[in-house]
């Protein structure tokens, strides 16, 4: 006859009771965050995955169509054009923005007059709305009457079609410059914060050892702010792949007809989802964009150890 083993729970000790109570309250206090993550993050992620396999116009129930949206998006010329554009956009924007942010931060970290005013000046575009910034840059880029071409012509150079050019590279490069104007202030502040954490003793020691300005910058300051530079690069890369406002600010509106050769993925997502009510292709495009951003970030992460110093 088999005897059954009955597990008798251990008597509650005082310590365990307190732990349980603390755990209980822990769940309660994390509840808002958990709800927030589930409702506004997890659910949209899962739902958009599902939608990418359906035909859904927002108004009628989604209809399962398998991989059709993915195949259609991947077969569309405009999708690959948009991917090419966003890659080139990132390749131009990220290095320029990071380099400029580093140089400006280094300059503003020196003992110069009106330092605060300069910091404000460089940060101003960050808080300028895209609508206003877009209008100013459209005017500056105007082929016939813009201030940039006026300057070029006054020194004997030919005017350039900046954002009206038939060459996509010129258009994307011009827009990348505008994005640098908008974002360099934010990156500069981050790198500046990193530079201000460089101990004075280290700088003084390097000076005593004979390091001049350039050597001090490259051999002492730069290695010590590489975590910040790396962070700036990651954030700039993500913002480059998610570029949307800058394109709308300069082109006006999708309904006014942005040429296909100047499209980026987020414009396609917005157009398909909210102008044409094609949620399936929009979700598929968004997921493909996510895969690209993730791959690019992992690529950057791979090289992190080679040049970023956390010690």
């Amino acid at each position: 006859m088999a005897t059954s083993r009955i597990r008798i729970p251990a008597p509650l000790t005082k310590g365990r009771c307190v732990m349980q109570k603390q755990g209980y309250w822990g769940y309660i206090f994390t509840l808002p965050f958990v709800i927030n993550v589930v409702v506004f993050l997890l659910f949209p992620i899962l739902f958009s995955t599902y939608i990418s396999f359906t035909e859904w116009d927002l108004f009628n129930p989604p209809r399962w169509i398998g991989l059709d949206n993915w195949v259609r998006v991947l077969n569309k010329h405009e999708f690959w054009v948009s991917i090419r554009n966003v890659f080139v956009f990132a390749l131009i924007f990220v290095p320029i923005q990071t380099l400029m942010a580093f140089v400006i931060a280094f300059m503003l970290n020196q003992a110069i007059r009106a330092k605060g005013l300069f910091r404000l000046f460089y940060f101003l575009p960050v808080v300028t709305p895209w609508i206003a910034g877009g209008v100013v840059w459209v005017w500056m880029f105007n082929y016939q009457y813009g201030v940039i071409n006026w300057v070029l012509e006054s020194v004997g150079l030919a005017p350039v079609k900046w954002i009206d050019s038939s060459h996509w590279l010129m258009v994307i490069s011009s827009i990348a410059i505008v994005q640098v104007w908008k974002g360099v202030g934010q990156s500069m502040i981050m790198i500046l914060a990193g530079m201000q954490n460089v101990p004075k003793e280290v700088l003084e020691a390097s000076q005593i050892d004979g390091a001049n300005g350039w050597k001090q910058l490259t051999k002492v300051v730069f290695p010590m702010v590489t975590p910040m530079v790396y962070l700036v690069m990651i954030l700039s890369t993500i913002s480059a792949f998610q570029a949307f406002d800058v394109f709308l600010g300069l082109f006006g509106s999708i309904t006014t007809g942005i040429p296909e050769r100047n499209m980026v993925p987020n414009l396609l997502v917005y157009r398909d989802a909210f102008l044409l009510f094609k949620m399936g292709p929009a979700s598929a495009t968004a997921w493909l964009l996510f895969v690209i951003i993730l791959s690019f970030t992992l690529f950057q992460k791979y090289f992190e150890k080679k040049w970023v110093h956390y010690d």
Binding site: G257, E260, L275
Partner: peptide, 12 residues
Amino acid sequence: SEWRILVQQVVN
């Protein structure tokens, strides 16, 4: 809404 955007892109 869809074909009008496409036309406008090329007309521009």
